[in-house]
Amino acid sequence: MRVLSFSEKGCIRKNNEDSFLVLPGEGLYAVADGMGGHRAGEVASSTALHVLEKEVLKLVGLEDQALEEGLSKAFSQANQVIYESSTSDPENAGMGTTLTVLLVRSTAVAIAHVGDSRAYLWRDEMLTSLTMDHSLVGELVRLGEISLEEAEKHPQRHVLMRAVGADPEVEVDCRSIRLQTGDVFLLCTDGFSNMISNQELAQEFLEPDSWEVRFERLRQLTLERGAPDNFTALCCILD
């Protein structure tokens, strides 16, 4: 798996509350977008990935359902650590984080997800969303109350319904898919996905340039559009 990445504070924010993790030896790839006052967002996202890095060692040799269950337990452990910190340390009050994870095995990949950071699959020149946003607007879309186009401009599109560390317990979405040669996975925080539409992603991925060139163009486009939020993306390429 070849991995390209960037993580930037953007054009307005003073610090970067996003974090990402690339552990090729364990087949682990993750992005997290923290939230909270002062620098609590940074604490939440980095803590989630630190716990995940330790917990992944317990998942060696697991496959399929057992692997998904192990990933959910790792999320629960991260949730507990962050929640306890947020309720015991006034500086970390109210903190939480999104967390979107790929765990790659020889023939399959498990995806685990909480929040509105996203995972996509590029396969056979088609882009597929592997995650659903756990946001107020995402729920309104699922209920058919607003359209995808309306969701992109909705004033409450940043309101999360689920986050790691926000509550004593967390519900984790998990799924597994079989790998195919040429698969490309994209993990990103909402600072990126709010600036680049799915259609624009697919159009860029169809360009004949190298993945490095395509990925850099997406980074530059995010900045050109004002990048009002931190933005992070990982492009995981199965050669």
Rank of each mutant, 00 (worst) to 15 (best):
E26H: 03
V172Y: 01
F20V: 05
L221G: 03
G34N: 12
V141L: 10
L187M: 05
E212H: 10
L59I: 10
T87N: 01
A74T: 02
A30E: 03
Y29T: 01
R162D: 01
L221A: 13
V213D: 14
S129E: 01
H38F: 04
R219W: 06
S147I: 14
E216I: 00
H113D: 08
E8Y: 14
T128L: 00
S88C: 11
V81C: 15
R118G: 15
E152Y: 12
L136E: 04
S19G: 06
A30C: 12
S135H: 11
H154D: 12
E224Y: 02
S46N: 11
A40E: 00
R214H: 08
T232Y: 06
L130Y: 11
G37F: 00
E171M: 08
L127T: 00
E91Y: 03
L99W: 11
S85L: 14
D124M: 15
E17H: 07
L130K: 09
L130V: 15
S197G: 15
K58D: 07
R175P: 12
V51T: 04
E55K: 03
E8H: 08
A119P: 07
G115Y: 02
H158D: 08
N194H: 10
L223I: 05
A227W: 01
F6R: 02
V31S: 03
L238H: 12
P90H: 05
P228K: 11
S210C: 01
